[in-house]
């Protein structure tokens, strides 16, 4: 696939780890630490896919997703929710907020790559 991946994650370790693994998989990655930064970067960098942690400072992932879906500039960008909340209700709430897919931490990395491939192709 072409284009950048925007990784939104406030936990430093997890951000570093995921960015490096995505890089190793040959993907170009930019990162943000909170929901507001994420929205700014989506507008300015127009990434191909966004990986969004939901528990974020300043603006949480759910709010950021809703804003993204209302903004015509970026509403087309697919978002994969990435969260340690593992229940069905959490999954539903992420999808309702406008996420295209959902991955639970600890992340199954090969599975995540397939999800990224899938959402970028369908858009």
């Amino acid at each position: 696939m072409s284009g950048k991946i925007l990784l939104v994650e406030d936990n430093e370790l997890n951000r570093d780890m995921l960015m490096r693994r995505l890089n190793r998989a040959g993907l170009d990655v930019i990162t943000a630490g909170d929901g507001e930064q994420a929205l700014e970067l989506m507008r300015s960098a127009q990434p191909a896919v966004v990986l969004m942690d939901m528990n974020l400072p300043v603006m949480d992932g759910w709010t950021a997703c809703r804003h993204a879906r209302e903004d015509t500039l970026i509403s087309h960008i697919p978002i994969i929710a990435l969260t340690a909340h593992a229940s069905d209700a959490d999954r539903l709430s992420a999808l309702e907020a406008g996420c295209d897919d959902y991955a639970t931490k600890p992340v199954d990395f090969p599975g995540l790559l397939i999800k990224i491939e899938k959402v970028s192709e369908s858009h």
Binding site: N14, R24, A84, H85, A86, V107
Partner: peptide
């Protein structure tokens, strides 16, 4: 319980993620 699950998953994510990455390296 939900929070415990969440809090356990956060360090586990780093542990598993880094381990897999180092394994790959």
């Amino acid at each position: 319980l939900a929070n415990v699950s969440h809090e356990l998953r956060t360090p586990l994510n780093a542990i598993i993620g880094y381990s897999e990455m180092l394994h790959d390296e």
